[in-house]
């Protein structure tokens, strides 16, 4: 879906400072701009996907000041000074995958990968609170995210496997930046 539109000259703008995956950015944004669009179109961070723009699918999920959010539901103007972590910020290219990413890979949890931001962040969020979740708890934690390829079963298996691999002190989770 093509979302780029010409910028009306009368659209109010402002400068915001946000840190994306550890890199501070000073950005000129429109007041009406969604964080998702700022990340993708101005920062070039393509890990959060533009799916439903309605808060349903979870593909645009990022971590915003330590909380997972759907970036299509957030005005950039409202998060001046924030720290944002995208899926691409969990590990550097060439490094070992985050344990959750690796468990998803090993379990064929995803096919196209469009929904990965939602599922990886939801799984991290769950395991940070509950290192040994039941299947019911995993399903409950994943509920805000849509996958249209796999039918979720392998995602649930992936979260269970990740839970078993992550040490109790969570020191093996990817860097928190």
């Amino acid at each position: 879906m093509k979302r780029k539109q010409p910028v009306p000259s009368e659209a109010p703008t402002r400068t915001v400072e946000i840190t994306v995956d550890g890199i501070r950015r000073d950005l000129l944004v429109e007041d009406r701009e969604l964080l998702l669009d700022t990340l993708r179109e101005r920062v070039g961070a393509k890990a959060p996907k533009a799916g439903c723009y309605a808060g349903d699918c979870g593909a645009c999920t990022v971590e915003l000041d330590g909380k997972i959010v759907k970036s299509c539901l957030q005005l950039t103007a409202a998060v001046d000074g924030a720290e944002v972590t995208t899926l691409a910020g969990l590990v550097d290219p060439g490094e070992e995958l985050d344990p959750i990413q690796q468990a998803f890979w090993d379990n064929d949890a995803f096919q196209c990968g469009f929904c990965l931001s939602g599922f990886v962040f939801a799984a991290r969020d769950l395991l940070a609170r509950n290192p040994d979740p039941s299947e019911e708890e995993i399903r409950e934690a994943m509920v805000g995210n849509y996958c249209r390829c796999t039918g979720y079963v392998n995602y649930v298996a992936g979260v269970r496997e990740a839970a078993g691999r992550i040490s109790p002190d969570r020191s093996t989770l990817g860097p928190q930046r």
Binding site: G55, K67, I68, N145
Partner: peptide, 9 residues
Amino acid sequence: TGGRQLRNQ
């Protein structure tokens, strides 16, 4: 409806 992300927002 909307999961943990929605509950945060």
